[in-house]
Structure formats: C-alpha cells, structure tokens
Design a protein around this nucleic acid. Structure first.
Lengths: 143, 143
DNA sequence: GTGCGTGCAAAGTATTTGCATGATG
DNA sequence: CATCATGCAAATACTTTGCACGCAC
C-alpha cells in the first residue's frame, strides 16, 4: 500500500484533509488493474460507501493525477480513462474488439528523448498508442 | 484541390449527395493548416454560408474522418481537434503555452511496426505525443 | 418524386461548480 | 472552531439526434 501512503503525504503537504472518501477511492483504484472510467470507480466505491457522489470521484481522481500517481487518458473518444501510473508503459489498442495491451520499449523512449531535445523541449511525459487489429480480430476483418 | 476531389468521390461511392455545405466545410478545412476544433470551423464557414448549423459541421467532419482524410484527436481534454491527414506526423506539445510542433521520425515508426508485429497486431494507425516545456516556457518555469 | 441533407431546437454525455451541511486538523 | 470536503442539484461544454422542410439525383 505504498502508493496510498504517497497520496496521503501529497494531501498533507498541500494542507488538505484526509477523508474516508479519498482513502476509499484511492485504495480501490490502486487495487485495480487496467483502465477505468469515472462511472466504474463510482459504482465500485459506492458498494463500500453508499452515500458517495460522482463529484467526489472526479475531484479525487483529479488530485491523484496532480499527485502524479494516476494518468488521465482519452483513447479515441471523449470519455476519460484513468490509469495507474506505477510503471511506465504505452498502449496497443485493437480497433476490432477494444482490447488494450500494455508494452514498453526502451529504444522508442530514447528516440523520444532525442526528438524532444532537438526542439529544445524539456520532456515531462508522453503517450504513444498503436491502433490495429489483434490476432483474434484480424481473420474476421479479412473475410 | 486533390483532397476535395477525393472527398467528393467518397461521397459519390457511398451513394450520398454532394452539397454546397459539404464542399464549403471540406474546402475550408483543407485550406487550413494545423488543428482546429468544431467551433472554429463553424465560425469560419459561417462567413461564407451564414445559415450553416453546428450539426452540419459535425456531420461533415465525421464523413471526412470516415473518408480517411481527417483525423479526430483529443489532446488531454475532451474537445475534439481535427487534423488534416495529408502527411503523417506526430506531436510535441508544450504544457506551458500549448504550442504544438509537428514532427516525424522514421526510426520510431519502424520500431512501432516491430512492436505491433510482436503482439500479432496489424497496425492501422498510431499516435504519439510528447509533452514538455518548450524553450520559451522552460526559463519561466525554472524561476 | 424519393431519399438524403439541412438547420433548428432539444436531448445526450461527461464533467464541473455553487451551496448548505458535515467532518477534519 | 476555522477550514476544507462532501453530496446534491444545477450548470456547463461538447456533441448527437428528431423532425419538418428543402434540395440533389
């Protein structure tokens, strides 16, 4: 539960308050793997805390993003998906079935650094998404 | 005006109809460089066609995306930005001032192909965005 | 003429905000 | 006990849809 600690620390450092809601949301999120939207978080946390509101979910997720523990992503459409930022990785997304594979490639990371440097950018973060048909969807599409 | 031709062809092939509105929107867009949102398109095209509606803009942009001539992107927030898909390129985005630099890197493209192949993906498209501080914003942030 | 396209207004989503109340440091 | 957080409802921002009328084929 080290990430939960980090979040509590972040909250303290900002002079904010630690609440049951924030703990519940953060700890559920850190237990979870993959990409989730606000509604999923709301639904799940509601089981442990029936009174919780949507706004609290959004407000807490925003804090987690500011704490650098979570990334907010938009794959294609407008809805935000939140992702655990433990280890860095990029995404391979199947346009057929929506499956998301995470991967990491050190060579690409290095090349990104050199591109940023060429433009005088101080690189803070990046996103890379590869869209295509996965091995399962490929045959279906070929018909 | 070759892209406008392609769009007209796409419309014809689908059994749809060519209209003044579609032409006006598409040709304004192809004349334009960079990333624009629906409202900008609406405002600009309105000058030539005061009666035009927002829905027609959205409907036409969707057609252009389906025709493969335009990409719809979401950089960070929910609003869609449309981009001319003539030459492929990726983006370097300044988190300080919002400036967007387009670039292309052949080595990265090749590595992306190999990543996709490793997962058995048939690559259709990709996006890569580097976020950081541009040379102008870097000093301000350092203070 | 038939069917698709248009503009308008209304409805949808996803998210944010104002406010009175409640909890935390 | 001052301040921040919460839940609700209302507001917002962006986008889509239903519908009556009009235009392209």
């Amino acid at each position: 539960m080290e990430k939960l600690e980090k979040f509590r620390e972040f909250i303290r450092d900002r002079g904010l308050k630690s609440t049951r809601q924030r703990d519940e949301i953060a700890s559920w999120f850190f237990r979870h793997r993959g990409h989730v939207n606000a509604e999923q978080i709301y639904r799940e946390v509601k089981e442990a805390m029936p009174g919780i509101g949507f706004s609290t979910v959004y407000r807490t997720m925003k804090l987690l993003v500011e704490a650098g523990l979570v990334a907010e992503r938009h794959f294609g459409d407008a809805e935000a998906l939140y992702e655990n930022l433990s280890a860095h990785h990029d995404h391979c997304i199947c346009t057929g079935c929506g499956k998301i594979i995470e991967f990491e490639n050190q060579q690409i990371e290095q090349l990104q650094d050199s591109v940023a440097e060429r433009f005088g950018f101080l690189l803070q973060s990046h996103r890379m998404e590869l869209y295509g048909l996965c091995s399962a969807c490929r045959p279906k599409a070929a018909q």
